[in-house]
């Protein structure tokens, strides 16, 4: 009862703060009175509805979504495998360190421009998303592996528990908070960097290309509308992915 009241109150507070922000935005845009600089939220909503009817709207979303998600999933898989190897062999951790440090510290724009020379437009956003996701997943999972309860591992050693069972019963449950937090952070970054790659590379038929056109033609309403779509896609995919991870863990615990 108490929880439901608190949750309802939280929801109302969030809605109120969103409504307040929209009001400030609307008032600010009306005060400036120049749609080239800032459009009103109402204009953005109108543009969003008109975008839905455009022929290439869903194909642009599909193009970017598939590539960015593919990059994210590749980063998740490769980062996890690298962390598993580094967790087992200290030498591997040392060897991976310069690559991870480089990816973490080099600006994403430098990678995008470099990759423009190496890669096709179709694979650019996937690769950039992959590159940005990799160090986050690697670092978090490795930290999780290192924090695994030594006493449980000793227990597994005494009972001669096989690797697969160790992974399922010991490592995966202990990695859960690290995996959830890494995925949450990495997913947002995958979208930001992937779209940036599409804008700089002007990938044909992508959301990035739409943003680039909005910049060229000064269509601020388009810029806001597409940005809104990116945010919705990013948050929606994050929620969906984390939901499946939670489902996966719930299934695991029923084993």
């Amino acid at each position: 009862m108490m929880n439901s009241t608190t949750s309802n109150r939280n929801r109302i507070e969030k809605l109120a703060s969103a409504a307040f922000a929209l009001l400030v935005w609307q008032a600010g845009a009306m005060l400036i009175g120049e749609s080239l600089l800032i459009v009103t939220p109402i204009a953005v909503v109108k543009r969003l509805f008109s975008l839905f009817t455009e022929a290439d709207f869903f194909t642009s979303i599909g193009y970017s979504f598939l590539r960015i998600v593919a990059g994210f999933l590749a980063g998740l898989i490769v980062g996890t495998l690298m962390a598993a190897v580094a967790g087992k062999f200290h030498l591997a951790e040392i060897m991976f360190q310069p690559f991870i440090a480089t990816i973490k510290s080099v600006p994403v724009a430098s990678f995008i421009i470099l990759c423009l020379i190496w890669l096709s437009m179709g694979t650019l956003s996937s690769f950039i998303s992959f590159l940005m996701v990799l160090p986050i997943i690697y670092s978090n999972i490795l930290q999780g592996i290192k924090s695994t309860d030594r006493k449980l591992l000793e227990m597994a050693e005494v009972f001669r528990v096989g690797l697969l069972r160790r992974i399922v019963f010991i490592y995966l449950p202990q990695l859960k908070p690290y995996l959830m937090s890494a995925c949450s952070v990495a997913m947002g970054l995958a979208w930001k960097s992937g779209i940036a790659a599409e804008v700089i590379g002007v990938s044909n038929g992508s959301i990035g290309e739409k943003l680039y056109e909005a910049k060229i033609y000064y269509t601020t309403a388009d810029l806001f509308a597409w940005t809104f779509i990116i945010v919705v896609l990013s948050i929606g995919f994050e929620k969906l992915f984390l939901f499946f991870i939670k489902k996966f863990y719930a299934g695991l615990e029923r084993l």
């Binding site: 006493k151 449980l152 000793e154 227990m155 019963f169 010991i170 449950p173 615990e253 084993l255």
Partner: peptide
């Protein structure tokens, strides 16, 4: 210590 897998 019991050394059990807590969530199972």
């Amino acid at each position: 210590e019991d050394r059990l897998c807590e969530s199972f």
